[in-house]
């Protein structure tokens, strides 16, 4: 059953960047867009299970640190080979200076 989890403070994430968020035995990536919006996806790339935390965020795209696969982190859509399986995405809300994810 998904529930809202207090994941981090809004300024824990640099603009146009991401952080890793672990909860239970699951791992996620939380993004802050250049327009100050927040998003959440699965933490591991669908290609070789590499964590996206060391990847590069450019606009709305996260590039995997390993093999340059790209995803749109708003929708999880795989954008460039070698990735072909989309990332799971999760609802995010901001209350005050806290970021909540529904996972």
């Amino acid at each position: 059953m998904a529930e809202w989890i207090d994941a981090c403070a809004t300024d824990d994430i640099d603009e146009e960047d991401l952080i890793r968020f672990d909860h239970g035995d699951r791992t996620f990536a939380i993004y802050r867009s250049p327009n100050d919006e927040y998003f959440c996806t699965d933490g591991l790339c669908t290609h070789e299970q590499v964590h996206l935390e060391d990847g590069l965020v450019m606009d709305y795209v996260i590039e995997c640190p390993k093999h340059n696969g790209q995803f749109d982190y708003r929708t999880g859509e795989a954008k460039r080979a070698p990735v072909c399986v989309n990332l799971g995405t999760y609802p995010v809300k901001v209350e005050g200076d806290r970021v909540f994810v529904e996972i």
Binding site: D54, G55, L56, P65
Partner: peptide, 11 residues
Amino acid sequence: RGNAVAKDIKI
């Protein structure tokens, strides 16, 4: 260590 340099290499 690990993927520590990945982001800077991409930039």
